[in-house]
Write a protein that binds this DNA or RNA. Structure first.
Lengths: 230, 230
DNA sequence: ACATGTGTACTTGTTAGACAATCTAAAGGC
DNA sequence: GCCTTTAGATTGTCTAACAAGTACACATGT
């Protein structure tokens, strides 16, 4: 059941590789990706490269207009706010819903454990389990379209997370503690409180990242009260 | 400013035409769309047709696996529930948000007027302004990603609406009255009430459509109390 | 009769090379 | 220095073709 075979097309394979190169920072913000470049470097035909690029454009990871070269998206402060607010919209509703049935998804619990496990390593290692924590909450409502919508956001969200971690804007302990508390609130049926904590959780990351990018941070950037014993 | 010129690519043009043919019912549920068919009928090369088809697949209007012919999606009762619940997630949050600032978008008001204007004509004419009513509410929050996410749903939503109207499952007067009431609740700052009414509004359409498709309808299918004087 | 294997037709995945339209940036003229 | 022209690079689209996969009918063996 696990690891079902996947007959990936060449297009998908290249798209996946490009994606990971964007996430790893190998392809930096604003970097150009011409169709011929991609085609030659992967030794495929140009239409194939084109299709891969178009996939990433659809995901929001690349940007391009007609007849213009595709470039890695440049996230400004406004985009960051846009992204995090969209996240908050979806995720807070999801938490309320999950709390109603007191349904704590095991995958989220596991993801948080994984964050704890890597907390001594490189800061970028936190990104994957952190992302997984949030996606597993979304997936837990069991709505295909909602998961799909969230997926369309995930690429950009991950880009933001990479930035947050690279710049050490958040303490891993804090992430961990807040995730834990959110799960507890769901278990206790306190949806509204969970949604509020999530708003704080996301708001802090959001405003600190905005500030780090040269925007003016909102009040949400501050530290929380009481979760971490000084 | 209005009607800004659009240098549409051939791919986009074909995609747009196919889309409208799906919505109009000319291309029925489950109908096959071969790449060569599309290519010959529009007199373009197969790769061009392929790209168009892939666009519609990404939109959720067509369905296809690797090496298999693309087909118009077949919406079962489960899909309908999935779609409408996803809608409700986004839209109810949006209403709460709009009510907080008592922000009644003019486009929504206009859309509802347009519904009233066509109410004597063909039932399918209601679909476009009805869809516009809901999208304009979403767009009113001014979040690019949220609008984008909703767009990814719009294709399927519209398919559902076409069904609802074709089968005369809802009275236009009722749609109109509930839309009106929702706008009033927003204006009055009563976000929670607006969200609840929306849930009713969507829930009724949802369960009636489910029932019409052979699923078992939930309790939401019934008529409302008091909005329409008998 | 049933299950199994085979084969052919249809369809998609991918490639190659080519041309026109468009964008980008550098060279030149005022 | 600024604007225009020109050349190069890049994308949009096409034609033609082969490889690989799917589907369905057919034949085979039990």
């Amino acid at each position: 059941m696990a690891g079902r075979i996947a007959a990936v097309s060449i297009v998908d394979a290249i798209a996946a590789d490009l994606r990971s190169r964007v996430f790893s920072g190998e392809l930096g913000s604003g970097e150009a990706l011409t169709e011929t470049d991609v085609a030659t470097s992967y030794e495929v035909a140009r239409p194939t490269a084109k299709a891969s690029i178009e996939k990433l454009v659809a995901e929001g990871l690349l940007d391009r207009g007609t007849h213009k070269t595709a470039r890695v998206v440049e996230l400004g402060p406004e985009s960051v706010r846009d992204i995090y607010l969209a996240r908050a919209y979806l995720e807070s509703e999801v938490l309320r819903r999950l709390a109603r049935t007191k349904d704590v998804p095991q995958e989220a619990v596991q993801a948080n454990r994984d964050i704890a496990a890597v907390k001594t390593g490189a800061p970028l290692d936190v990104v994957e389990p952190d992302m997984r924590f949030h996606t597993s909450l979304i997936d837990a409502v069991g709505n295909e379209r909602i998961s799909r919508m969230y997926r369309s956001l995930v690429g950009e969200v991950r880009l933001c997370m990479v930035r947050v971690q690279s710049l050490h804007l958040l303490d891993t302990e804090l992430i961990l503690a807040e995730h834990q508390k959110i799960l507890e609130l769901i278990e206790g049926g306190q949806g509204e409180a969970a949604a509020e904590l999530l708003d704080e959780h996301l708001g802090r990351a959001r405003e600190r990242l905005v500030a780090a990018m040269g925007g003016s941070a909102g009040p949400e950037a501050g530290y929380p009260s009481g979760l971490l014993p000084e």
